[in-house]
């Protein structure tokens, strides 16, 4: 579903490397966890996949299409949740969702069904008429999630999606991620919550200093390093690699 080839990205005048030639493949039907300490390059990778940033070198393919050559078609395949849900504060929730639905060319009935279903599942149907600026962080996160999922994209890219969610919403989202992947779709998400990653990810990658230091299933990686938990494995890799 996602193929990242020799991807590099630098920032600023001093060309500080945020990503240093990473390669990664994420298959259809899997939940892929992207882990790493702060400043490791997780959000930069996500921003490159979603076309927010321009890569210095390499390429990214989504469903066989290059983000460089077909940015609009690639973006149509993606439902993206950014790490900070501070967006369009002066719109109401329903206006935001309608805007997203228009952008993804959703028909009236389709958007109605999906908005009603998702807003009920995330329990924000009663506040959709209010300005987003008046929402709590968690409510904004739920709204952005609905916006990302309602057009049923095959690829979900979620940057720290659990931050701010109440336990029930987090539980709902985890179930939805599983269901989505089981239907042959893909979920690529970054998180600092290792318990979540351990429980729901089919595979994980750990990134540090702009380089991928390991990729595999949680069990494979734990066995390889003889660690009993993902947390210990993560800490060991981060310290020693």
């Amino acid at each position: 579903m996602i193929r990242i080839q020799n991807l590099s990205k630098s920032y600023g005048k001093n060309k500080i490397k945020a990503l240093d030639g990473i390669n990664l493949e994420v298959k259809k039907g899997e939940i892929f966890g992207f882990l790493g300490p702060n400043g490791a390059g997780k959000t930069t990778t996500i921003k490159l996949i979603t076309g927010i940033l321009k890569m210095d070198e390499g390429n990214i393919f989504v469903n066989g299409m290059s983000i460089k050559d077909n940015p609009i078609e690639v973006k149509k395949q993606i439902g993206f949740v950014p790490d900070n849900p501070e967006i369009f504060n002066r719109l109401t929730g329903i206006e935001y969702l309608n805007f997203i639905a228009d952008v993804y060319e959703m028909g009236k009935e389709e958007r109605k069904t999906n908005i009603l279903k998702l807003s009920k599942e995330f329990e924000i149907e009663d506040v959709l008429g209010e300005s987003i600026g008046s929402y709590s962080h968690g409510m904004k996160q739920k709204l952005v999630l609905i916006g990302a999922l309602m057009h049923k994209p095959p690829l979900w890219i979620l940057d720290e999606p659990m931050v701010g969610l109440d336990p029930k919403a987090a539980f709902t989202l985890k179930n939805m991620m599983r269901e989505h992947a089981d239907k042959g779709n893909t979920v690529f998400f970054s998180t600092h919550v290792l318990e979540v990653a351990e429980k729901i990810c089919d595979r994980i990658a750990i990134i540090k200093g702009g380089k991928i230091i390991t990729v595999g299933t949680v069990e494979e990686l734990k066995n390889k390093k003889h660690e009993e938990s993902l947390e210990k494995l993560f800490l060991e890799l981060i310290e020693n690699e």
Binding site: I72, K75, I100
Partner: peptide
Amino acid sequence: GFYFLKSLP
């Protein structure tokens, strides 16, 4: 919010 806008098709 411009960065989010860039992620949309």
